[in-house]
Design a protein around this nucleic acid. Sequence first.
DNA 1: ATTCGTTATATTTGTAAAAACATAACGAAA
DNA 2: TTTCGTTATGTTTTTACAAATATAACGAAT
Lengths: 112, 112
Amino acid sequence: MSYKIKSRIWIESENNVLLGEGRVQLLKAIHTNGSLSKAAKSLNISYKKAWQLLDSVNKSAKKPVTINSVGGKGGGGAQLTAYGKALVEAFDEINKNCWRFLDEQLSRIELL
Amino acid sequence: MSYKIKSRIWIESENNVLLGEGRVQLLKAIHTNGSLSKAAKSLNISYKKAWQLLDSVNKSAKKPVTINSVGGKGGGGAQLTAYGKALVEAFDEINKNCWRFLDEQLSRIELL
DNA sequence: ATTCGTTATATTTGTAAAAACATAACGAAA
DNA sequence: TTTCGTTATGTTTTTACAAATATAACGAAT
């Protein structure tokens, strides 16, 4: 067969994106790095892009996904809320389930 | 809830895309229009882009997906092969199944 | 009060993808 | 043999998006 099926999923609210793969990756990087700027560096994206993504997520979420602090020792930082962590986990699980589902669907096709 | 989950799926072979939503849409338009140029017009894309897409599909498919004829009465035309039709149907079905599956997955999430 | 690495934001520059434009080749039919 | 609307392809222009650059504001700790 040798064909592969791929997918991209995302969750929207009123034509604003809440979560997608990039956003989830960013939230994970924030969690492990403790700041948005370090998270951006770790993903090789500009701080600005990271900030825009995070801002967009926080705006379309029902509750805050991160707590951002500015100034102070170390300059500040950002950390995931419990809600944010739960969202990340939920998204990842749906995504994995989707992959499994699609692989199974593809294997039924005899034409390829 | 009011959140919606969306997806994009595609089938690849050795990092070339065989089918995706745009390609399938194009194949359908070829089938209903009888020519690539008319199909492109109906989709509001340039002929060149349509040709490149179709070429890519035919190159990564095991068997021809369209039969293209150049010259002659009416200038020529393009039509789907039986194999092409079968691929389109298979893709559409997987896609619909995926939508159903994802909606069902989303409905399990209580956080949203 | 100075320092520091952040968050937050605006502005400019660069780049890759898309669109637009142009044109050759084709071949059945009149 | 001329005509026609195609397929097939190259070239240029435009546009959208990402990247780069710059800078203000912040506030706990020293």
